[in-house]
Design a protein around this nucleic acid. Structure first.
Lengths: 195, 195
DNA sequence: CGACCGATTGACCTGCGTCAAATATCGTGG
DNA sequence: CCACGATATTTGACGCAGGTCAATCGGTCG
């Protein structure tokens, strides 16, 4: 039961061929997988985005830990509900929106989550080290189309995606385009930094 | 905390406009929402597909019930993990596959789930009362395109979608087209009919 | 300098969307 | 039993967002 302390990771699934769908991101303070692997074999894989620091909680200690600390148990339950909420929101995003909106929405979500755990730089940009191929697998779009959409967004002064960082130029408009509503992330409700 | 006893329901979310994304189905034996609404406000809505019978478990009794019956608590945890797994699989489905595959995959999943709870007719068809508009909102496709894809599938002898029932003509080929792998549904693992 | 990896570009194509109208299908009341 | 409105399926013509293929460019590193 790994807990992320620093760095980013993502979860993904393979359909048969060379394709890949990313089904979630993990930021510091998140559990990698909420599974007790005994109960339910993993149906996805995990990969790191750059170096990651992880704390591993032995499963044997876990039930004890949860019993002893109700606050941790509650955090645990919340983490799972949050995961469900994010997946539903993603499904809506992938299913209903166009390329630009998908990217906007993803950037909004990551911006909020990264900000919540303090992965912000002095200039307000946010620590997000991904290449366009990863964005493609996140949104279900093509690398080429991601590239063109990003150019458009850059030109529209919405966001700037640097080598390792994301700079949101116009948060209002970004959220508006994405029809983004933070509430499903529940950042206020003390799920920031379990550590 | 409603538990479905008979009939079908689905969960959905609205992006701003008149669009709608269905984010899950509930069959007999499923909990409608695994939320303790105190902890986490719902971010989706529920609708019934025809008449539904529901048992309502008061939230106050719940923690007691779980504590007293570990088997139920375990079923509960499993239900949540299953929900996560289905959402991930759906995300992959919506993100990576073409219209025909999406439909095939959805039909495969529903066929398995409905069969697991005995909603099968004598002729092997399965109880699935939905119209093409609902299919559209499930897959993120257009009503018109759903119609054309269904015709193709009918012509290819893959499935037949009647007024209230789905008949799978060629299960093998259906699963092959959809790249469907049952395992994420874990039907063997005693999650059939909690009731 | 050469190899490599990621970003970018261009030409072209197609799956799916859009708009709009035509047919079923069905429950209801006359 | 039939007419009628409402709901669902089907059809046709047409357009475009996004996919595909393939080449180029820029930077980085040994």
């Amino acid at each position: 039961m790994p807990l992320i302390l620093g760095g980013l990771a993502f979860l993904f699934k393979h359909p048969a061929a060379g394709r890949r769908q990313i089904v979630g991101y993990r930021v510091p303070g998140d559990f990698c997988d909420v599974h007790l692997s005994e109960l339910y074999p993993l149906d996805y894989s995990v990969a790191a985005l750059g170096p990651v620091r992880v704390a591993s909680i032995p499963v044997r200690d876990l039930s004890d830990l949860l019993a002893r600390h109700p606050a941790i148990e509650r955090a645990f339950a919340l983490a799972e509900l949050l995961d469900l909420a994010m997946l539903r929101e993603w499904l809506l995003n992938i299913g209903q929106r166009n390329a630009q909106q998908k990217l906007c929405h993803f950037f909004c979500e990551m911006s909020v989550r990264l900000r919540a755990v303090g992965m912000v730089n002095g200039d307000g940009s946010v620590e997000l080290p991904l290449d366009q191929a990863v964005l493609a697998d996140t949104t279900g779009l093509t690398l080429v189309h991601i590239n063109r959409t990003l150019q458009q967004m850059r030109h529209d002064r919405l966001v700037e995606l640097g080598k390792r960082r994301l700079t949101v130029r116009d948060p209002e408009r970004l959220a508006a385009v994405a029809e983004f509503d933070t509430s499903y992330l529940r950042v206020e409700h003390g799920r920031t930094a379990v550590a």
